[in-house]
Write a protein that binds this DNA or RNA. Structure first.
Lengths: 210, 210
DNA sequence: CGACATCTGTCACGCACTGACAGATTCGCT
DNA sequence: AGCGAATCTGTCAGTGCGTGACAGATGTCG
């Protein structure tokens, strides 16, 4: 799952930082699920890990950032999955398989699937988390469009098509997630995403009603 | 521009409220452009209109809401423009013309075009405004997808295609705006939006580089 | 004019977030 | 091991956003 051959030579300091970071995330999600996002204060999260609230803000820029940290990781996973797709695949098709693949991995519980399920709950519950999540997605669109441009073999700034593809793919994913938690809670997100991308591939300029 | 035949019988109280609301918006944009969004406090905006800051929050839910109030109005304008499109037009084509039409109207300065130009500046400058703007767009997607569904003559909740179309169209618009303020400041947003929608109509599953 | 609804200012408060400083911890080097 | 340098952390003080509660001002209607 992490084929990047980063040397594991983490110093003591690095390991400590990583542990407190994970502890903060765990404590935060624990509190968010029990009391809700708004009702949870940063002080409470910090106390649960026995650090000062000042330290919390040295790890996360805001309370919302804890909630969206997992989503950010998913974006990074999609980048890896996209690189692994065969080079000849059309862009939307490659994006489709990369996204579905990552979502299935999370659904299988290879990573903490409890928090994975919790995130959509948080986005739905709290407008602040929703806003931060959307902002983060927009930030990642630059990177994603660069990779799409590389696949197409075009200039990522001059040609608007990679940006359009990245943005549209992200939109399709958001639709899938929203549909999942609103109208189709029984379906898996990966299946809904797969269908959404299939519609994209087929073209979306539907005729008006007769 | 406002063909809705609402009777102009506004009471004194209504008119006063409308005036303070507009005064707050004007003062806010004035301060935002001179000092920047972050550096402007709600107290300053309120003082400029000679009301208490408490009153400010009775008109706007947050400081960001003032900045995005104009964008919200643009969404409403698009709804009207969409209703005016011929019924037989395919959905993306209808959306394309509706959006371009509204954008051109703002560029022509039929409404306050100074604030119109300022908004994209604010979104770019302040992450908080960006986040709120994206959130507002997502809120409006429900309404937009309902109208797309009506055009297609399908059920807006059971059929995922209207939601997909609305979301994708919104994404295309965002790409156009981003490209405008980043790489093509000489082009008009309406033209860039027109081109983005043209790409959508043509399909976007581009082949990989040979 | 008087009863009523609505709007507004003042006060008090909680919480998110930040800069500055000092003490503790770790690192790199001898 | 020991020492100086770099980094991390807690404490403190402060700013600004946003909200409930209450009282007074203002508009509304008979």
């Amino acid at each position: 799952m992490s084929p990047t051959t980063t040397v594991e030579v983490t110093s003591l300091r690095e390991r400590k930082k990583q542990r407190t970071r994970e502890a903060l995330i765990d404590a935060a999600f624990e509190l968010f699920t029990t009391k809700g996002f708004e009702a949870t204060t940063v002080d409470e999260i910090a106390e649960a890990v026995e650090v000062s609230s000042r330290t919390f803000f040295r790890y996360f820029g805001s309370k919302e950032d804890v909630a969206t940290s997992l989503q950010l990781q998913q974006f990074l996973d999609v980048y890896s999955a996209l690189d692994a797709r065969p080079a000849g695949e059309p862009v939307v098709t490659a994006l489709r398989h990369a996204c579905v693949q990552v979502l299935r991995a999370y659904e299988e519980g290879e990573n903490d699937s409890a928090q994975f399920a919790c995130v959509t709950q948080l986005v739905q519950e709290s407008p602040a988390v929703m806003a931060r999540s959307l902002e983060m997605c927009t930030e990642q669109l630059d990177e994603l469009s660069r990779r799409v441009a590389a696949r197409m073999g075009v200039d990522p700034v001059a040609d608007p098509r990679p940006k359009l593809v990245a943005s549209v793919a992200s939109a399709a994913l958001q639709v899938a997630v929203r549909a999942w938690r609103e109208t189709e809670p029984d379906e898996k997100v990966s299946d809904l995403a797969d269908r959404a991308f299939a519609l994209l591939e087929a073209g979306i300029n539907y005729p008006a009603a007769p």
